[in-house]
Amino acid sequence: MYYGFGAYAVAMCQKYFGMTDIFLRFFIAVAAAGLLGFALGFILRRYREIFFAMLSLAFSMVLYGLLAKAEFLGSTDGMSISPSTILGYELGRFGLLYFICFFVICAIVFAQAYLRSSLGHLTTAISDNEIRVEYLGYSVEKAIHIKYVISACLAGGAGGLMAASLGQVDPDSMVLWSVSGELVFVTIMSGLGNILAPFMGAVLFEFIRTYAFELAPQAWQMIIGGTLLAIIFFSPGGLWSFFQKLNFLRKKNND
């Protein structure tokens, strides 16, 4: 949802303020998604597990319902986005690529710092034992809220960049819950807890999808679903843990 919201923020700023600067676009997307996350976080932070997921789903469907019917935002057709600029100059395809890489690196550095911090470690602590965290004197809800806003910002930034590179936003490919499903799939495939893992996962996902689509246009979902099941079964920690295991074995063999 935040992904789509970031993308739409970019589109709206272009429509109403003529804003096409890549930096501005990125920050608008991050800020818009962050604000939305901050607002909804007050409600969502009280929920856990399946209820959290369900309420998020409800919110995103509400947003989808609104966007798909809002005439001034292009309804289901969405809106097109003009090429990005930097200080007034138009960025070419490769220029955009460099900037996206730059933002991705920023995000990685930021996320790494977060995960190393006390607050980042608190996440594991909360999933292990909420009661204890409360008794240590920190509000579980606050920690969840902060984390939620951070991930909303990241998703929003990604959405903004996606909008800039695709040159198009529309509700079906940006806000619908199946998009979130894909993102979750990438996360599972790559494994949690390492920054580089999702990157690998995302590359692999696109790879599998493209090839599956080429090879079997009627059965690509089946291939993706099968991959998902296989990963869950054979390497529940995702590909990352699989690599770790390989590394471990290699070391063992060397010794």
Binding site: S117, S118, H121
Partner: peptide, 8 residues
């Protein structure tokens, strides 16, 4: 904000 400093 101090909580954003590294844990170790």
């Amino acid at each position: 904000l101090e909580l954003l400093l590294p844990l170790d």
